[in-house]
Amino acid sequence: MMNTDVANPPGAVSMAPVSFEVNGKRCELVLDTRTTLLDALREHLQLTGTKKGCDHGQCGACTVLVNGIRINSCLTLAVMHEDDGITTIEGLGTPDDLHPMQAAFIKHDGFQCGYCTPGQICSAVAVLGEIEADVPSHVTGDLTARAEASDAELRERMSGNICRCGAYSNILEAMREVAGESA
């Protein structure tokens, strides 16, 4: 059991150690307990691909994969991720070796300003994984059957990622292409 000093004077900054893997690399940090996973990635590990949009879990710009599951990195404390495996946009692919979803976003022009794009891509990769893993959604017709990667399913499942430029239809096309390849 790890325990920070409960006897700290009230209001004093409390530090705690945490160790996790980011994009396959072990990271050992000692952080102010208030540090979100998003701030740990951006400010302490200089992985600025993951973006801070609303910082309240509403926009999806900070979406990363933790043990393969997509979450909002702004709404989780870094110290709660001991031994977790975190994948950010930098870990999905590189300019020379793009992830198929990154390549599809470029091909279909799935972005304009690009700010929401890392979150969109991480989310899109995870959405196809969730359909594959038989997770139902609000638009799934029959709960006892597997959901398909239909346009309605992809749209509903991406509703936690906001794009102010409005690249939604091209994001959908990119996802449709990758879903078709993996089907």
Partner: peptide, 28 residues
């Protein structure tokens, strides 16, 4: 929401859960 028995026998619960929040939030 994804649990087999919940989907088959307590469908209203599965439906209610997926009607809320976003995929990222429901994962947490």
């Amino acid at each position: 929401a994804a649990n087999g028995r919940v989907r088959r026998e307590y469908g209203v619960l599965s439906r209610a859960v997926v009607a809320g929040a976003s995929g990222q939030l429901r994962n947490k």
